[in-house]
Amino acid sequence: MCAIAAPEVFGSDEIGNAKVLITGEIPAALHAKVRRAESNCPERAITIIE
């Protein structure tokens, strides 16, 4: 789900588990997409630290 909502930020590793692709601060242009990824994650696995 996160990779669908914010493909710039989330992808998957070789076994298909989700992983974060970028380090550090999320660029402002992607904030909305990342919020959407967070609010659509069925496992509540995403935490946004502000």
């Binding site: 298909g16 959407r36 609010s39 659509n40 994650c41 069925p42 496992e43 509540r44």
Partner: peptide, 20 residues
């Protein structure tokens, strides 16, 4: 729909392996 944490594929350790 903006917020959609649906569980069509289940949840937890048995979450559907074939969802993609």
């Amino acid at each position: 729909r903006e917020n959609n944490r649906h569980v069509a594929f289940g949840s937890g350790i048995h979450r559907c392996a074939g969802s993609n």
